[in-house]
């Protein structure tokens, strides 16, 4: 899905800190339009590794719509540009639903769609600072503190 120029520039400004954070936690970030011509500049492929389980890699696809004003869609795939409906691409962590292929937490588009009440008050999507870094750090925290293995 096309992203407006303002959102693209905002993402470019914030993605460096995200890449640095991921590197400290055994992960990495690749923007889709850096993979090949015609790629989507609104899509990022982010690799996460659970602390203490470095043999397991998880690839999350972030799609942004209006940054920083709206949350990303977040789904897992078995490989970069892979299918988004493979349950074994998903980790088992609280709120991560491999059977629904979504994350039911107030940090992504799917979560706010499932629970519209999260759009108000203290659970609302943050728009200040670096929300891209924030949501990536939240996911890394889940991997490091709540990881229970790979979904079947």
């Amino acid at each position: 899905m096309p992203i407006d120029d303002e959102s693209f520039l905002n993402l470019e400004s914030d993605e460096g800190a995200v890449a640095a954070s991921l590197a400290e936690h055994r992960g990495e970030l690749t923007r889709d339009d850096h993979i090949s011509d015609g790629g989507d500049r609104a899509v990022y492929w982010i690799t996460f590794t659970p602390k203490g389980v470095t043999s397991q890699k998880y690839i999350a696809r972030y799609e942004w719509f209006a940054y920083p004003y709206e949350p990303p869609s977040i789904k897992f795939a078995p490989a970069v540009r892979g299918s988004l409906v493979v349950s074994s691409a998903w980790p088992m962590m609280n709120g991560y639903r491999p059977t629904s292929f979504d994350i039911c937490r107030p940090m992504c588009r799917e979560g706010f769609t499932t629970h519209p009440e999260w759009r108000q008050g203290s659970t609302a999507w943050p728009t200040e600072g670096n929300p891209f870094l924030w949501v990536v750090e939240i996911m890394q925290f889940h991997f490091d503190n709540d990881y229970q293995g790979r979904s079947a």
Binding site: N94, G95, R97, C104, R105, P106, M107, G111, T114, H115, T123, E137, I138, F141
Partner: peptide, 10 residues
């Protein structure tokens, strides 16, 4: 440290 907001799940 990183300050983490432990949020509710759905």
């Amino acid at each position: 440290f990183t300050l983490v907001k432990k949020i509710t799940q759905g």
